[in-house]
């Protein structure tokens, strides 16, 4: 039976040669209590969307978003993009998200993925995890954060700007 198992896994993995990654569709709550559809509600043709998965308990996520907050106005002048910060806080800390975000003064669009449905559909294991999406296609992704990662993000945004 063992070779059968291995064969089936190889057969499965061979399919990865096909296709490229679309952004999946998912309904998430916004800070205003409204439901938003990713990416249906964020699908301006050729616009660049930076999607950052974060949580109130994730120190590197907060450092990364604070860093982006600091350079946001300057970057917007160079590349027109929209930053969507998707909180994966579950019921334990989800209630803190509204006050936390406002207390930080973040100007980003905030969505709540409370039971990690979008995170799971993208196969994301850990936060922080950052994507760049254009025309509903994922054109860049990185996981984890170390100081300086934002430079690569800006370079990628400039490379793909219309």
């Amino acid at each position: 039976m063992k070779p059968l198992k291995i064969l089936s896994i190889i057969l499965l993995c061979s399919c990865f040669a096909y296709g490229q990654q679309d952004m999946p569709s998912c309904k998430l709550l916004g800070l205003d209590g409204e439901t938003y559809e990713v990416m249906g509600d964020f699908s301006v043709p050729d616009r660049l969307y930076v999607i950052s998965f974060w949580a109130t308990w994730c120190a590197p996520c907060i450092v990364e978003l604070e860093e982006l907050n600091d350079v946001y106005e300057e970057w917007i002048k160079q590349v027109d993009f929209t930053l969507i910060a998707v909180s994966v806080d579950d019921a334990r800390t989800e209630m803190r998200v509204n006050s936390f975000v406002k207390g930080k003064g973040w100007p980003f669009i905030i969505l709540k993925d409370t039971n990690q449905e979008l995170k799971r559909r993208l196969g994301i294991n850990d936060v922080p995890h950052v994507l760049i999406v254009k025309n509903k296609k994922i054109i860049y992704a990185h996981t984890g954060y170390t100081a300086g990662d934002e430079i690569e993000l800006l370079e990628t945004l400039k490379k793909y700007k219309s």
Binding site: M95, N98, S99, V101, K102, G103
Partner: peptide, 15 residues
């Protein structure tokens, strides 16, 4: 029960 008030630069949350 949860309630909160937040505006740019400040946020209060009670649970």
């Amino acid at each position: 029960a949860n309630m909160g008030y937040s505006k740019n630069g400040k946020g209060l949350n009670l649970v």
